[in-house]
C-alpha cells in the first residue's frame, strides 16, 4: 500500500513539474501576417538550415556535425551551404527568433555564414523570402554580396 502511495505521489509530482515548465513558456502574442508578393527587408544572422533546425545552438560557423553524431565540424555551416542546403536569416537577435529561408543560391553565401546580413526581396510565404538583394554588415557598413 505504501508503495502505491509513493508511486501515485511520484506521478503527481512529475506531472506538476511538467505543467509548471509549460507555464513558464512565453505567452503567445499576435503574430504579424505576411502576404505572398509583399516586399520585405529582414536583418539577422545567416544560418544553415540543416544544422540550425536540429539544434538552435548551431548558429556559428563551427558547430557539431550531425553525422557522425556530435563530432565538431569545423566550418560546418559553410560546408552545408556549399552542399546546397538552404540558408536562412535568423532575425530577432536570439536563437528563438523568426527564421526566413532564402530562396537563392546558398553556395554563393557560404563564405558569409554566421555574418549579419540584410536581405530584401519578395515574400513567398510566411518565413520564406525570395531575395533580390543581400548585403553583409562589415566595418564599412552594408556591403553588397548577392
Amino acid at each position: 500500500m505504501k508503495t502505491y502511495f509513493l508511486f501515485s505521489f511520484l506521478v503527481v509530482l512529475l506531472y506538476a513539474a511538467s505543467a509548471c515548465s509549460s507555464e513558464d513558456a512565453p505567452e503567445a502574442t499576435a503574430e504579424k501576417t505576411y502576404t505572398p508578393g509583399d516586399s520585405l527587408e529582414v536583418i539577422g544572422t545567416l544560418v544553415d538550415t540543416n544544422c540550425f533546425s536540429r539544434d538552435r545552438a548551431n548558429i556559428g560557423v563551427d558547430h557539431p556535425h550531425p553525422a557522425p553524431e556530435g563530432q565538431m565540424g569545423p566550418a560546418c555551416a559553410r560546408f552545408c551551404a556549399r552542399q546546397g542546403f538552404p540558408v536562412a536569416v535568423l532575425t530577432g537577435g536570439d536563437p528563438d527568433g523568426k527564421v526566413w529561408i532564402l530562396l537563392t543560391n546558398g553556395q554563393v553565401l557560404a563564405d558569409y555564414m554566421a555574418g549579419t546580413v540584410r536581405a530584401r526581396g519578395l515574400v513567398r510565404s510566411d518565413g520564406i523570402l525570395i531575395p533580390e538583394r543581400i548585403e553583409l554588415k562589415t566595418d564599412d557598413g552594408w556591403t553588397f554580396i548577392l
Binding site: T49, N50, S53, R54, P86, A88, V99, I101, S125, D126, G127, I128
Partner: peptide, 10 residues
Amino acid sequence: GEKAFEGGIL
C-alpha cells in the same frame, strides 16, 4: 521528415 520553421521540412 520533421517540420522545420515555416514551410520547411527537414
